[in-house]
Amino acid sequence: MARPRRIVLVRHGESQGNVDDTVYEREPDHALALTERGLAQARATGARLRELFGDERVSVYVSPYRRTHDTLGAFDLDPERVRIREEPRLREQDWGNWQDREDVRLQKAYRDAYGHFFYRFAQGESGADVYDRVGSFLESLHRSFEAEDSPPNVLLVTHGLTMRLFCMRWFHWSVAEFESLANPGNGEMRVLERGEDGRYTLDKPFERWREPEPYGATGQPPGKPAGWPAG
């Protein structure tokens, strides 16, 4: 099995919904475009990716949302070295059709109190639902590593929650650990790098907005999760 040298996760650039939450009342979530700032963020990330990948081939998986496609387009990667596949399982957490602004704000307050992993939006998904489809995608991704021509780099262009859940699934983090982590900023990336022992580590941890709460059979909060950088 030729596992990739690195797996890169990128959150889309700033979108219309990130600066004006009333837009969800008029436009479908999947159709929201990037702002000018979001395009600039994507171009800056693209420069870093081109330097990181060099002349190596890249297998790209992109969420079907407009903002992720636009982010990928702004990367300006060499089309001769990339293989692009749209992957619906990497989409944003579904909140359910057009959204009423005040209702969503109320549901977000409920989610904050209930827990981001288990709370299910009334017409949409819970974080656990997204975790399940990310797990399904990972099974497909691992099968792709078995191909003889498997590229040394994998790039996922997706969303903040999905990035955290991907790492939770990959590194077997606990629910309590997931609940303590914040989304990366728009246009930010995280790199899973394969070491000499074949194991992957994150180049940079997700920021924590709180310490993990004691939970589970041990009654002890988890320490630094597997895959985090040393130090």
Score class of each variant (00 low, 15 high):
residue 169 R to V: 15
residue 144 S to H: 04
residue 68 T to G: 09
residue 80 E to W: 12
residue 67 R to W: 03
residue 140 S to M: 08
residue 26 R to G: 00
residue 44 A to C: 07
residue 14 E to D: 07
residue 183 N to L: 12
residue 48 R to D: 09
residue 193 E to C: 02
residue 85 R to Q: 15
residue 172 H to W: 10
residue 112 D to Y: 11
residue 130 V to N: 11
residue 126 S to L: 01
residue 163 M to E: 13
residue 151 P to F: 02
residue 189 M to W: 09
residue 35 T to C: 05
residue 205 P to A: 07
residue 167 C to L: 08
residue 155 L to C: 09
residue 183 N to T: 13
residue 176 A to V: 01
residue 145 F to Q: 06
residue 86 E to V: 15
residue 146 E to V: 03
residue 107 Q to S: 08
residue 91 R to M: 12
residue 131 Y to Q: 13
residue 119 Y to T: 06
residue 195 G to R: 09
residue 164 R to H: 06
residue 184 P to W: 01
residue 162 T to K: 05
residue 93 Q to A: 13
residue 136 S to A: 14
residue 6 R to I: 02
residue 47 A to S: 07
residue 217 A to E: 11
residue 74 A to C: 12
residue 174 S to G: 09
residue 156 L to Q: 09
residue 99 Q to C: 04
residue 57 R to A: 07
residue 44 A to V: 12
residue 202 L to R: 00
residue 26 R to T: 12
residue 66 R to L: 13
residue 8 V to F: 02
residue 221 P to V: 04
residue 7 I to P: 05
residue 95 W to G: 06
residue 22 T to Q: 08
residue 169 R to D: 11
residue 184 P to A: 03
residue 100 D to S: 13
residue 128 A to M: 10
residue 159 H to Q: 14
residue 230 A to V: 08
residue 202 L to G: 12
residue 70 D to G: 00
residue 168 M to W: 07
residue 17 G to E: 06
residue 197 D to R: 09
residue 199 R to P: 02
residue 185 G to Y: 07
residue 4 P to W: 04
residue 84 I to G: 03
residue 38 G to D: 06
residue 28 P to D: 10
residue 19 V to T: 15
residue 70 D to C: 02
residue 225 P to W: 04
residue 23 V to H: 02
residue 186 N to S: 10
residue 107 Q to V: 02
residue 195 G to F: 01
